[in-house]
Design a protein around this nucleic acid. Structure first.
Ligand SMILES: [Zn+2]
Ligand SMILES: [Zn+2]
Ligand SMILES: [Zn+2]
Ligand SMILES: [Zn+2]
Lengths: 162, 162
DNA sequence: AAATAATCGAAACATTATAACATTTCTTTC
DNA sequence: GAAAGAAATGTTATAATGTTTCGATTATTT
């Protein structure tokens, strides 16, 4: 993990979007997963911001873009994208965010800024390992970890002096 | 943390209930928080099992016990109990579970068994510290942590060979 | 007792997610 | 290319979870 967790608020975000979509297409091609136009559209909408987006907010955006969509449309796309490791669900927000490094399976921890609502992904194997280890000491076999840290990002700390 | 995370399936659970209610009463008395009969009833229902319980499941149980309850009845009680540190919300389940050591504020990590649905609370300050520290390295100021580990508890590992 | 604050009752409403089944599109096989 | 099978999508309805509002009641303080 060399990349900074949160990019500056004014970074060139179009690059994030383009890179995420390109990587998604490559991954799906490799896996023979069908990243259909609708699914790609949903992924693109999710990547519009680093702020997680809810299913119904996505639904609205799909409709704004002219698609005749109903809730299942969105939830099916979300399911596909999750199964293929392209997005994560943020449990504490009931919302979805693009995965920052979808190419390899990984444990994730999320930093959720209360001020700007952005989310960044830590990919600390160390944390994941320690969690698994502590669980193991209780005789517990870990299958999946949900780690979400709510707080204030560096930029918001500077701007709002919270 | 000396107590085992998961108690045996066949432990004397009435003791858990009684102890939890007694501790809750003591805490609320000390804090001048009003643990009304309704709130205590909800807490007792939550402690009926080590399995987290959803708001509407609670609502049903309240009605079974003769209370004329509506959703706000439950959610208000849950809010009170959470504010007073007597219960935790398990985000990945949309459900609530009794706090195992409500007397002092503490970070919590939850082990959630996929087989028996029980939840145990780790209270590892070490994990909490490491998470805060890793976040801090990203310039992020932690305010609250959600840590939920899904997997299989020791007893279920033995019984079901998963 | 009166004033104030906290709690509760009740109805409506809002948000998030899934079930069920029909239709279309894509892929494979012949 | 046509037929069969599989995957994806459309459509409607409904389930599950959570909130707002406002008035009535109860508890606490003065
Ligand atoms: Zn970006
Ligand atoms: Zn921020
Ligand atoms: Zn018990
Ligand atoms: Zn278990």
């Amino acid at each position: 993990m060399s990349k900074p967790a949160f990019l500056p608020h004014d970074h060139n975000h179009q690059r994030c979007i383009d890179a995420a979509l390109a990587e998604a297409r490559a991954i799906c091609q490799r896996k023979h997963s069908r990243l259909t136009p609708q699914r790609e559209q949903v992924l693109r909408l999710i990547w519009q911001e680093h702020r997680p987006i809810g299913a119904y907010e996505l639904l609205d955006k799909l409709r704004e873009e002219g698609l005749k969509a109903a809730p299942p449309t969105v939830y099916r796309a979300l399911e596909f994208l999750q199964e293929n490791g392209l997005i994560h669900r943020i449990e504490s927000l009931n919302a979805y965010t693009g995965c920052s490094h979808p190419s390899e399976p990984h444990a994730s921890q999320f930093l959720v800024c209360q001020q700007c609502q952005r989310v960044a992904e830590l990919g600390s194997e160390q944390i994941a390992e320690q969690l698994s280890e502590q669980a193991r000491r209780a005789g517990f076999a870990s299958a999946h970890q949900t780690v979400e840290i709510r707080g204030t990002c560096a930029e918001c700390l500077r701007h709002f002096h919270v």
